[in-house]
Design a protein around this nucleic acid. Structure first.
Lengths: 191, 191
DNA sequence: AACTATAGGGAACGTTCGTTCTCAAAGCAA
DNA sequence: TTGCTTTGAGAACGAACGTTCCCTATAGTT
């Protein structure tokens, strides 16, 4: 395995472990065992556990955001683009490995101790707000709609994680339809 | 201080520390210092740190739920009772000490390692869903409305915690008004 | 073949944690 | 006062953590 792959492999494995069991619950010894690298090499690739945590979160953000954008791009019109957000959530919640938003989890676990994690969480959520704001603006909708749709999405993530059931995505989607139809230029139910 | 007060005092102080900085970040030595009790007495009052954590969460649930119910009881009619939920959130978010929902934080931190914490979190959120479901039923609204309003409230909690700003409560309230007016018997805007 | 530089594998280090133990001081019954 | 039980205060314990260090074995160069 060349160095680049080793680097990426560590991040992938760490992501899975951190997401499944929490960051503090996974030790460097266990990560070392799972990636099958000597500790020395692990510390040659990353200066500290914290650096791995940051790399994991940054990768999560990129993958999640890209997946969302793909869903949005595939939708035909503004209304469907907004609703595509909840279809994306539905697919995510249905994954066996789903255990909530990794950023919310990390924030709850370490946000009060690590300003860097708090800041990354804020940036991730802010980026989501921007995506929605842009979609709402493109559709000529009331600017208040973006944050409202974001609340539904955030609530669905925590509710699905805690309840262990994916139905929150559909509930959020139905609520979103009502909010959209009430505040978008598109005539209600026209799509 | 009599034993009952000592018991309650430990729970109060532990709640503040856990909520401010996370459960794992607060050690028994620090808690002992803050409550000014010998470690031995602490372990006479509670068999373990875990028992303190459970007592803290149970107390949080009782206080939060009672405060919510008081707000609801003070509202005059079904529509206002539903909206009172978001006024309650607004007051909560505005507190200096607000740092999100303690259950969501505990779930993110320890939910995957402690089935008891996961279960208490589920029960807390389920109880909130029941309160909303009852209000919606009393108002003769569409049963789907309850979970939708819950999503807005949950999303507002995490959003307010992460963004550090309380405006999510108002955004949730405005969205709730739209959802309520679309799905409640009460004529839109009649209250 | 001999020497050197590198890398594997894991022991060791220094902390910190939850929990228990020690031990002296203090209260109290006789 | 004497003996006995309970308490305060914190040292001690065993485990686990992130990180560093040591030693051996190997690979490469001459």
């Amino acid at each position: 395995m060349d160095p680049d792959n080793e680097h990426g492999h560590v991040i992938e494995v760490a992501d899975r472990l951190f997401y499944e069991r929490g960051i503090q619950a996974v030790g460097m010894a266990e990560l070392r065992r799972e990636v099958d690298l000597p500790l020395k090499k692990l510390y040659a690739l990353f200066p500290s556990k914290q650096a791995i945590v940051f790399a994991v979160l940054d990768r999560r953000h990129r993958i999640w955001t890209a997946g969302l954008q793909r869903r949005i791009d595939d939708a035909a019109d503004p209304r469907r683009k907004l609703l595509a957000v909840y279809d994306y959530l539905a697919d995510w919640f249905a994954e066996d490995s789903f255990r909530g938003c990794a950023f919310i989890n990390a924030f709850g676990e370490l946000g009060s101790q690590s300003p860097d994690i708090a800041e990354r969480t804020r940036a991730h959520k802010e980026s989501f707000q921007q995506v929605l704001a842009r979609l709402v603006a493109d559709a000529g909708g009331n600017p208040a709609l973006g944050p409202q749709l974001a609340l539904l999405a955030e609530g669905a993530q925590t509710t699905a994680a805690i309840s262990g059931s994916p139905e929150a995505a559909q509930q959020a989607r139905q609520a979103a339809e009502i909010l959209i139809d009430a505040q978008l230029r598109t005539a209600p139910g026209s799509v």
